[in-house]
């Protein structure tokens, strides 16, 4: 098992990435050639969209930082990551549910799998389910999209296997309710009042239901941990839940909880991206300010334009 695992880790993903690049590029070439023939004109513009080169540079940069930090972490230099209180509380919340003999409720948001927050939410569900399987607590996850149901079952089944508790996986606990936002809310609200879960996790993309869930959760005395990147809902989670993962913290949660060096390495890559943006902001603002104060210095204008271009301006 360990060997297979290791083999998966090393060169294979890179081969897959390469294949993806080749397919993408090759199809582009072909489509471009076809277009040329049909239009009967020589390709006047490059098939590469050079307006998007700065974007490509940013993505390659973040990708390179990720690779470097993952590589460093594997070489035995795992990064130190600051404490995130909400995530330290996950085990405690599940433990309490176990003691009280009540279920854990997990809501992976109300959007479909084409929303990256849902993907992050399902990943978190896997982590929570693993801990719950170890503690022998039941995780209930009603969902409002059929595809999310399938993905969630997949993740929970694998987590139970990984925890050595294949018997703990009960697919019926992850069930579809309805695609309709408030139909789903009505169902979950009623379920909370009747089954009184001891711990509630809201991890994913949320809209108006955030406050209905968290106020109902509060009234039944559940420990509530929320995480979302929907900034309009953050105030309600912050006010009504015990712990909240704000924006970027939510995306870091899965990596943080895994505790694996590679995953923690990607958090460092995230930080390096932040530092890069902050540097651009500082330098850009200083150059722009200097340009206003010294309108005669043309080089300042050029430098400013260059910096803006690097930001896609």
């Amino acid at each position: 098992m360990d060997r297979a695992h290791h083999r998966l880790r090393s060169p294979w993903p890179w081969a897959a990435i390469l294949v993806g690049c080749v397919i993408g590029w090759g199809q582009g070439q072909r489509a471009h050639a076809d277009a040329g023939v049909v239009a009967g004109t020589a390709a006047a513009e490059s098939i590469l969209n050079e307006h998007r080169l700065p974007l490509a540079a940013w993505i390659v940069g973040i990708g390179a930082a990720t690779t470097i930090f993952v590589w460093r972490a594997r070489r035995g230099r795992p990064p130190t990551i600051r404490r995130i209180a909400a995530l330290e509380a996950v085990d405690e919340a599940i433990g309490r549910a176990t003691e009280m003999g009540r279920p854990v409720l997990f809501i992976p948001g109300i959007q479909d799998m084409d929303n990256i927050q849902t993907v992050a939410g399902v990943t978190m569900l896997g982590r929570v389910a693993k801990t719950a399987a170890e503690y022998d607590a039941a995780v209930e996850a009603p969902v409002c999209r059929s595809l999310v149901m399938e993905a969630a079952r997949e993740a929970v089944q694998a987590s139970c296997l990984a925890a050595g508790r294949a018997d703990a996986y009960q697919p019926d606990r992850i069930h579809y309710v309805t695609d309709e936002q408030f139909g789903y809310v009505a169902y979950v609200g009623g379920k909370m009042m009747r089954e009184k879960p001891a711990a509630c996790f809201y991890m994913g993309c949320f809209f108006a239901e955030s406050l209905i869930f968290s106020e109902n959760g509060n009234s039944i005395g559940a420990i509530q941990i929320a995480g979302t990147a929907e900034s309009s809902q953050l105030p309600f989670f912050v006010a009504a839940c015990d712990y909240t993962l704000i924006g970027e913290e939510f995306f870091a949660a899965s990596a943080y909880l895994s505790g694996e060096p590679d995953q923690l390495g990607t958090l460092q890559a995230q930080d390096s991206g932040k530092v890069a943006v902050m540097s651009f902001i500082v330098i850009g603002a200083v150059v722009a300010t200097a340009g206003v104060l010294m309108p005669s210095a043309a080089w300042l204008g050029e430098l400013g334009a260059l910096l803006r271009k690097a930001m896609g301006g």
């Binding site: 998966l8 880790r9 990943t123 997949e154 993740a155 987590s159 870091a252 990607t266």
Partner: peptide, 16 residues
Amino acid sequence: ATSLRILLGVDRSWLG
């Protein structure tokens, strides 16, 4: 970062 974790094969927990 989340997307890159998936595309670089670092995070496979979504696969189980």
